[in-house]
């Protein structure tokens, strides 16, 4: 990734200065630190926060504007349905592997409804975690994902897969609805 540049008023450029230490990143890294130690003591907590701040300072990343809320119930529904999907798809792919027939696949284009990059990433991640679909190409300009799907026989099955992928996106949008004020930033 090329460095983000700010243009000064006289036309020269300088590298943008992000606020490197972001609280969510520090919290996440501290959690990882505690999980690695497998214990929670005050000393470990302080050490974890220090290490997390150090990591954020040494490897700065552009800030992620999380401009959405979280609906716990919809999130539970999302995760539950995801687990069901993973188990079902694993069984299906296993049966495809074990039977003696030529597989027929398809490359399906899914036009996502949401225009946020973060949503697109989440949908792509969840779809590639489910066995039976691999993200072959992602086009950011049109928010289209191209997925390679196993064991697709006809047009009807393609359409069914596309509806499932869009339903997954709808569940994600229900779980993380965009905050009204942060709408422009997210898009």
């Amino acid at each position: 990734m090329s460095p983000v540049l700010h243009t000064r008023r006289d036309g020269t450029t300088r590298p943008a200065r992000h606020r490197a230490v972001q609280p969510p990143a520090v919290a996440g890294l501290t959690l990882v630190w505690l999980a690695l130690w497998g214990d929670v003591t005050p000393l470990l907590l302080v050490g974890g926060v220090l290490v997390a701040v150090m990591v954020c300072l040494v490897f700065p990343l552009p800030p992620l504007h999380l401009s959405f809320r979280v609906r716990p119930l919809a999130l539970v529904a999302l995760v539950g349905r995801f687990i069901v999907d993973v188990v079902r798809a694993s069984v299906e792919v296993s049966s495809v592997v074990l039977r003696r027939r030529q597989v027929s696949n398809a490359v399906v284009a899914v036009d996502l409804e949401s225009s946020s990059d973060l949503m697109m990433t989440l949908v792509a991640s969840m779809l590639s975690l489910v066995p039976g679909s691999v993200v072959v190409e992602a086009r950011r300009s049109t928010h289209t994902l191209f997925l390679h799907v196993i064991d697709v026989r006809d047009e009807e099955a393609v359409e069914r897969f596309r509806q499932e992928a869009l339903a997954l996106e709808q569940r994600l949008l229900r779980a993380f609805p965009a905050r009204a004020t942060g709408q422009e930033e997210a898009s």
Partner: peptide, 17 residues
């Protein structure tokens, strides 16, 4: 599996579930 992408579908399974 006959081609690479089909093999990758099979490969996703132990990595996740």
């Amino acid at each position: 599996m006959p081609d690479l992408l089909s093999r990758m579908h099979a490969a996703t399974k132990p990595q996740v579930l």
